[in-house]
Design a protein around this nucleic acid. Sequence first.
DNA 1: CTGTTAGCGCATTCAT
DNA 2: ATGAATGCGCTAACAG
Lengths: 351, 351
Amino acid sequence: MSSPPESTPAPVPAPGTRPRRATSADVAREAGLSRATVGYVLNDVPHQKIPEVTRQRVRDAAARLGYTPSAAARSLRSGRSDIVLCLMPDWPVGPSVLALLDALSVRLEGHGYTFVTHHRSAASRSLAETWKAITPAVVLVLDDLPAADTAALAAAGVRVVNANDPTGELGAGGLGAGGVRIGRRQAEHLWERGRTRLGYAYPDDPRVGTFARPRLQGVRDVCRERGLAEPVVVEVPTEPEAADRALARWRAAGVDGLCAYNDELAVAVLGSAARTGLAVPAELGVVGVDDTVLSRLVQPALTTVAVRFDRAAARVAAVLAGGAIGPLEADRRSLPSGPEDELRLLVRRSS
Amino acid sequence: MSSPPESTPAPVPAPGTRPRRATSADVAREAGLSRATVGYVLNDVPHQKIPEVTRQRVRDAAARLGYTPSAAARSLRSGRSDIVLCLMPDWPVGPSVLALLDALSVRLEGHGYTFVTHHRSAASRSLAETWKAITPAVVLVLDDLPAADTAALAAAGVRVVNANDPTGELGAGGLGAGGVRIGRRQAEHLWERGRTRLGYAYPDDPRVGTFARPRLQGVRDVCRERGLAEPVVVEVPTEPEAADRALARWRAAGVDGLCAYNDELAVAVLGSAARTGLAVPAELGVVGVDDTVLSRLVQPALTTVAVRFDRAAARVAAVLAGGAIGPLEADRRSLPSGPEDELRLLVRRSS
DNA sequence: CTGTTAGCGCATTCAT
DNA sequence: ATGAATGCGCTAACAG
């Protein structure tokens, strides 16, 4: 199979063998220049003064050959690739996060990066294996990372951006506008509708605590500001019976307005209300988060807080791409608006 | 900031500068051997006869230095990386697909691959940019790929596996047990429950046709075999009004058993039934697909077909990892069971 | 000024 | 068990 070294050192690749990808050397040959010159032109190196004619010659040759630099060689040289690796949490992400990923992907492409995600689960091997196989330029972490991994990544010189660290590069807004604002929006809405006793449906899964805590905090803040009593927080596993029990507790406490961690829990409450004959919204107003497709389809249709991912993505991408650019700078650049504009309240029937 | 070249060309990395990653040369030095030997040992090259003592010496040194081969150098040499790239469709994937990805990730890691996904959307740049930046060993395509991209990938020698191509490497089972079986299972169940006139809720989004068509086909097949009339197929956009209209049509046609493309559409129908006062399951039996968390939470709880992703993933991973292994071989190897065992019917209240 | 030579970054593998 | 070559791109130092 291996072709023995021909006596004639043919620079012409054997026709029909395998259409080897064009390399910078090929471009150099085609243009009648050296590989160095090709590199300088194609990378727009400032120190080198190369006349426009030559530049064009190189670019033409590159185009003719369909040249694309080898990512492997490039990252071997530079130590890192153009890849932004997003580490997905091991809990099931909702559609909102997926939408954000889509938007983020487009955004980062605009900055010359390639955006990929890695879904790890409890059974996964060490994270180190993964990022070493990719040598990403940046790692975007959606939930918390084990300290060991954080340290290892830092040691390897990989920039780690944590989407939920208020002290991190993304600032308090974090990803998805920051949970506090979401909770605030829910509570404000219920208050405006005349609800005076709020409840909170908190997720059962400890893994989503990073997201849930700030949201609940937002609700708490509003209650305090408006002079309402503390919200009645109930942890609700995603099971019908659990929802029934939770609903009973809220009823006993006289709750008339309920903020749910997300649409899923909100629907659980809606289902429970239907079973037990509690009238929504007459007796209880319910607000979810995510604008899941289902939130429009359930009966009654669910009022929910949606995150505008196009905006959130723009902000996050700016931070990820601009290494030195802090969140404030980034905001001022590409966004006239802050994280608060990334939220939208969709009022439907359930509130 | 840039450190000028010292007059003393110190082979010792300046302490405290940057803890450069250990290379195979470092291991060689540490073990007092050559880089070649290190390579042979660490890669278990069969032709080379290296005594066990030496092997151990190398392994110890590698462990001591925490050596990990540079992925970049490796793929520069070999022409491809250890990455399996999954191209996500540009339509919103459901939780079932996500679960499969998780399982697949774990599985492929077992085969020495790194599994990453790329979410592209309509606004994305050319796919070529993406895979050239990654040089994956295999590309797993979830929906159809533009012909141009398929050709380009093939030309570059990248293996493309299409999850939904019955003629492809994954065989008729495809990913997720193949849609036909899913539809069959839904219809069989309704038939067993005494439903004699079936309806089908077909998704509105043309992009999911690849998944929807075979599922509907499965329902059709069962109707034919059981001597039932053709199912009443209605395209249902995910909007409440649309669901209402669809439900009206099914009622008019005397439908008493409904198969929905997925849980989402099933819930839409459930919501519509609740609004219009149609009794489920008394007057209409409803079966979804996916076992969404929500399917348990809605009222009435939804009967649904779940895919066992652990099994499906094992099968797919075996095909992806074993280049030469056909689907049949793969099945025989790691799975005593075929794709039909990858399905499970969860009977709840709605049927 | 313009463009070249040469060597680095790492792992793999043939020929010795 | 090893030296040397290979894969490809980047760039400091240098020559025309």
